[in-house]
Simulated assay, not measured.
Amino acid sequence: MTPHLIVSDLDGTLLGANHDLAEVTVQTLRELAALGHHVALASGRHHLDMLPFCERLGGDVHLISSNGAWTFDPAGQRRQARYLAPALARALIDLPRPPQVRLNLYRDNAWLIDDHAPGLLDLHDATGFAYQVQASPEMNEEGVGKALYIGMPDDLALIEAEARELAGEQLHITYSMAHSLEIMAAGVNKGTAVSELLDYLGLPATRCLAFGDNLNDREMLALAGEAQVMANAHPSLAQDLPESRVIGHHRDAAVALWLRERFALDR
């Protein structure tokens, strides 16, 4: 058996419409791990928010969290942590923004937000992970892996432009959804993290199967030897990655069904 690295985004990809894992997904990834394949979850989510999914998958899972700001091995040991430079984090915290835009910071052990946003918690019902409210002037600029702005696309476009003017070459700026603008240090993205994981495992990129649905998955999908884009993906993703394959919808557990066929698990 030739081992592969199977790496998937979570929301809009591996998770269903209820933001949870379907039983067929759990069973499929457990079977593949038992066969000797390596499984990784790569998400914009905080790593503490991802751990319950790893536990359901049997624990033998690599973690790439906050778009690559943190990486963990299956034993839960942190392999890498990449933070925004404190001066940049402070500038992003202080960046002018409309009152309806929520600023979020991901730190080693916490998700901070500048004001209550109960609707966001619905995305995390399956894990129970929750934010801590802290007014932005009081937020500490040390140890920030990701800054996340949540708001209307037009408002986020203005913040993005300001961030690029402020320090574009020192930042990696992307979107995980139309209303979620994500900013990490330059060079921090899922593709870089997956490349490092492949080196660690001693596997070539040709033996990497990747699944994603949004712009923060672009670098990861471009790297993978087999790139799968969800039917519900951002419209530009498949266009920008002509070698990719469009599979089914995340609400139908399409990743699991495609993997079962790819590795002939039902034969």
Rank of each mutant, 00 (worst) to 15 (best):
L181M: 03
Y131V: 00
E23V: 06
L241E: 03
V61L: 11
E182A: 13
E261K: 15
R79D: 08
G212T: 09
F263W: 13
M220A: 08
L223H: 06
W111D: 06
P242W: 04
H37C: 05
P86Q: 05
M152E: 14
G168N: 08
P96M: 03
A193Y: 12
E142A: 14
L265S: 11
M220I: 07
L123D: 09
E169W: 02
V133A: 12
L221T: 05
C208H: 03
Y106G: 10
G248C: 10
A42Q: 03
I183N: 04
A161V: 03
D155S: 11
A85H: 10
G151D: 02
P99M: 12
R102I: 15
G248D: 05
I6K: 00
A81N: 01
G191R: 00
N214R: 11
P98Y: 01
D20T: 08
N18V: 00
A157H: 02
A178K: 09
G202I: 04
E55H: 14
N109A: 13
R102C: 15
G12D: 06
M220E: 04
M50P: 00
A185I: 11
L158M: 12
M50C: 00
V61G: 12
E162K: 06
D49L: 10
T206P: 00
V194L: 15
A193M: 14
H46S: 07
A205T: 01
D213W: 05
A253G: 07
V39M: 05
S180L: 08
D20N: 04
L21C: 09
Y200K: 04
D217N: 02
A117Q: 07
H249P: 03
R82M: 07
V133F: 01
C54L: 07
A253M: 12
D115A: 12
T25C: 08
L14C: 10
V229P: 03
A254H: 02
A193H: 12
E142H: 15
R107A: 12
L203P: 05
A87R: 11
A126I: 04
L95M: 14
G212M: 06
D125M: 03
Y175H: 14
E196P: 00
L223G: 06
Y106N: 12
D266W: 13
G168C: 09
E226H: 12
L198S: 05
D49W: 09
T192V: 09
G151I: 05
D11F: 01
A186T: 10
Q132Y: 03
G58A: 09
A91P: 02
A17G: 11
T13I: 08
V101I: 14
G36W: 14
M177G: 14
A42T: 01
E226D: 14
H4L: 00
P3Q: 06
Q228V: 14
A238W: 09
D155V: 06
F129T: 10
N18C: 04
S236K: 04
E219D: 15
M139V: 08
I150L: 15
P99E: 15
L201C: 10
P235E: 10
G187E: 03
S244K: 02
A91Y: 06
G168Y: 07
L105G: 08
S244D: 02
G145A: 09
E160F: 00
T2S: 13
N67P: 03
L123R: 15
